[in-house]
Amino acid sequence: MAVLVIADHDGAHVRDTTAKTVTAACAISGDVDVLVLGASLSGAAAGAAAIAGVRKVLTAESAALGQGLAEAVTDLVVSLAGGYDAILTPATSTGKNFIPRIAAKLDVSQISDIIEVVDAKTFVRPIYAGNALETVKSSDAKIVGTVRATAFKAAGEGGSAGIEAAAVPGSAGRHADFVSEEVVKSDRPELAGAKIVVSGGRALGSAEEFHKVIEPLADKLGAAVGASRAAVDAGYAPNDYQVGQTGKVVAPDLYVAIGISGAIQHLAGMKDSKIIVAVNKDADAPIFAVADYGLVADYKTAVPELMEELARIGK
């Protein structure tokens, strides 16, 4: 039994999600290899090799892999699949894009969003926006799936796996072509792995207000910024800020929801946070049912007060 983990990384570093997926992989087998693919992998391969429990790191470089094109990733992973009983990657939008394609090429069912490894063939995953958890047992020869990283502890450091280059197959079939990319660079922590997240909802009313209120509070706390779907749809925040069933799933130590009502779909993305704070002027808002500390207040007065109070305690 061996497991291949496809790394989530930014070229220079492997993300925390990768070390967490390694933990899930180690519950399946002791032989865990990590595949780092992309256009330039300077630091990421070394980062993967240092994750405790990793047997070997494979690297694969090409322009198409760097663009995350599902067709190229699939060709590569299918060419390596013979040596593995399971193929896992974190459930990021990149991973969700290619994993089902790989599963179908290998003629196996996909296990989406694994939150627990019961045994090598049995997994727990959320369905219905996390309102039910199903335990599924696979009869397929191979397991192909995505791992909800927030459900696993990161594997430690101190590994010293060898690094090998994998052969990258030429593109055989029809594929999409990369045109352009608009990636917002930010000095804030990434939403998916942040220890603290401050999210704003429809209540903010405009993009300016979102910048003026949510971002300074996030910066004061060293937090990532999130948003509800309503805030994203209305253009107050970019699409990749969306937290929820159909956006990002986060589980920080502290989640602060400002002017968010707490719809089922939003809760699906944050209800596993350690501590939830809600600021909402409606005392009956459903968000309060999951909040550890609910403050019934207008954010317009509460957030400035919060900034002051944080400053007072030295934040």
Binding site: I111, I127, N131, K137, S139, A289, Y293, G294
Partner: peptide, 23 residues
């Protein structure tokens, strides 16, 4: 089907609902 659903369970309930008086 390749997967057998062994069981469907409820997720752990969150103990929320506590309010604070002020900032």
């Amino acid at each position: 089907n390749r997967l057998t659903v062994l069981k469907v369970t409820e997720p752990p309930k969150r103990q929320g609902g506590v309010k604070v008086a002020d900032v």
